[in-house]
Design a protein around this nucleic acid. Sequence first.
DNA 1: ACCGCCGGGTGCC
DNA 2: ACCGCCGGGTGCC
Length: 907
Amino acid sequence: MQSSRGWFSFMDDSVTETLSQALQGTGEQPDREPDTEILFGNLRGSVVGLRYYTGVVNKREMVSLVRQPQNPHDRNAVMVANVYGSQVGHIKRELAASLANIMDNNLARIDGVVPFGATNVFTMPVVLSFWGTEENRHAVVQQLSSHGFKLQTGSSGTNTHAHCANAASCVGICLTLCLKNAFDSLFEDLMEDKNGEREAAVCTPLLPHQKQALSWMCVCENSVALPPFWEDKGGLFYNTLTYSSVRERPQRVRGGILADDMGLGKTLTTIALILSNFHNGKPLPLEKCAPRVMWRLCEWMCDCHVSDQSLSLQRPVGFLQCSNLRQTDCIPRLRVCENSPGNMPAFLCLCTCVCVGKRAGSEVGAAIAAPSPSPDDTAATTTLIICPLSVLSNWLDQLEQHVRPDVRLNVYLYYGPERNRDPRFLSTQHVVLTTYNVMTADYSGSGGPLHSVTWLRVVLDEGHVIRNPNAQQSKAVLDLNAHRRWILSGTPIQNSLKDLWMLVAFLRLKPFDVREWWNRVIQRPVTVGDKTGLGNLQALVRCITLRRTKTSRVGGRPLVSLPKRSFNIEEVELTTREREEYELARTEGRATISRYVEEGSVLRNYADVLAILVRLRQFCCHPDLLGSTLSQTGVVTATPAELRERLIERLRLVLGSGSDEECPVCLSSVRLAVITHCAHVYCRPCIAEVLRTEQPARCPLCRGPIKASELVEFPQEVEEEAGGYPSENWRSSSKVDALMSSLLRLRCEDSSIKSLVVSQFTRFLSLLEVPLREEGFRFVRLDGTMSQRRRAQVIQEFQSHSPGSPLVMLLSLKAGGVGLNLTAASHVFLMDPAWNPAVEDQCVDRCHRLGQTRDVVITKFIVKDSVEENMVKIQRQKQDLVEKAFGTNPSKRKTSRIEEIQALMEL
DNA sequence: ACCGCCGGGTGCC
DNA sequence: ACCGCCGGGTGCC
């Protein structure tokens, strides 16, 4: 179930990057991507030599220009090809000389459209559009005019979005924004009733939305419909966007993108698809066998051979997590595998996960391959599933769990050094499961066993990982042979349309699998803000994608009904003694900060300010939280270098405490924190973007010069001084008391209710262990310092419903990935307010999600009359601010930040 | 190509 | 005739 943290941080970074680009985007950065290109103008030219080539075009058809530097007659030759790549002719010599120069120096991208005269015999006209970055405009115009050609500018061209072309401002911030909105609405209609439902061959009953997805997938696989934008024009097939036509029917890939939110059951639906839609819409013929659990136990017990003499087991082939087998039965007999992949729990064992013998290999294979009178190519019988390593065990678990125990599905785990690389063997399996890494390693640019098989179906799990077309794994994936192709991904579009191209290319959606047509027909029009382009994109996505979110509704009813959740703020009164101490610290802090405000040096002493704020926030939780390290030291006497050192040290302490600080660039929680020389904290990707685009680079907060080499890395999770607090020296606090009385009351009312206790301060979690232990609560703790393995253990323990299982989980606010599943808990106690409400929401979502059976109650403790109260007020305005921040400039944001601090300190 | 260009044939009106 | 003009041959790059 747990998705690797790595993928999520990857996603978050790229989101952050987009955001930071959006915030800084002025369109002036040199970027060769089509997004930033503008139209220089159009030029009428002619295509000659038509009679020598077979390529034909239609009226208004788009054509592409291809340089032919090796042409023996003219090294400037520019070939003209139609959408399908057939040569139509050449650009006339004189013009070609000029174009060659522009193309070879990459000064502009040149699109061609044949406006009319498509049936001419000897030559035909072509309208060329020149696209490039503003900085190259002059060179292009110059180059053309030196050959006596003049670009036509204005809206007279045939290009539909020419009117937008001169508005360079289109390219910058507003563009990114309108794109973002566009993405949001891209999927709007996708959750609608796609088709009826279909019965499944799995033993787990499918939920209605899963049945719906299954039948949609079956229709996608079985239908022979044309791909979008193609029309059958009596024998010829005509593309309504490129105006091209072909004689052979353009094949629509049998497959698509299942883009449901995480947790809606993409894996289960896919397993059901494999079982129920084999050839000609018939289910996969499966051999009956003894219930599989017995098989498994046999395997465990005899290690590598089985009592049933008719089957002989393969050699060990990989690693298998056996979490849903009877572990207690098997564990004593397991061999612990020494070279198991690092992030898998140690209870993994070397085992055989498939039993394939002579019988299974030959007879079953032959039965499946029996000839049938259908359009299906029945030679292909195997489904290849490729997934990240982190979800491999999930697939095995789910196959185990959902396939009826009395049938034998041959699943081969293509993983590990001993894997069977024989393509003939692989193609006799029902399912071959492997990882992107194994596939890519095998491929290494040319082929490999997986590329020698023609698969019935290829499934890319977490398919967004192939969004970078330059990555080896993407190239390898494109080169697989398959009849049906599926992408499973909760987030098919991460940050740009470019992500989608790779998916479309994988699905071989004609003609967009060729980058140029994708760019010309979809990407550039959409980027330039063309309404038709966006409509086309929507139409395209709609017919290859099914996406539902957990809030989607189908036919007016919610897709999945989550239990209610309620949110309370519980005000905590400090004791007189605490209040005195707090006021002392506050007055001191106020004095310091108000001095900075008067001097106008808040941002220069930002680290100091943060430290003061964190100190007060910690005080609200527990007076012992503030380590001695945060105490005030002399300020005036320090040299600038010492001051800087001190400030940076302060920041390290602030971050080290677990405090959820905000990145001034992306306005969300700092991820992969780095500290600048001038003592400000940013996400690494955010500041990297500043360094990349600004010359010379300046700190977005104080405008001081920054250098990449001077950034101080801050380790992701720092080990706070470990060890609990000795009970003798321990004292309580008002907030601790408030929590404990809630927990005790809950346990009294219903001892089966489990709670999450969340704080951003890891030390606070340690402090809380003492009273929990004293009151006899069984609890576990999950924080960022724990190994992947330990986390899995803790989660499993907490999620367990057995009588002695923990009632409380102490959870650090930022621990764990987004996918963390803590549905055993139905109460959430947020011990301290975070800057970023989204982080709190995320935390709550860990238990308020699919699988939660109880109503969820969230309690947030806020100390009355304190910074915390002010933080909550600011939080309320936060969403507003974030939205406005898109339109405001950095200096405005800087001011609002100072105002925010003043508000916090009531200055 | 119902063009342009080339180069040989030709040569007052 | 070291030209012009005519008309056939010819034709992408």
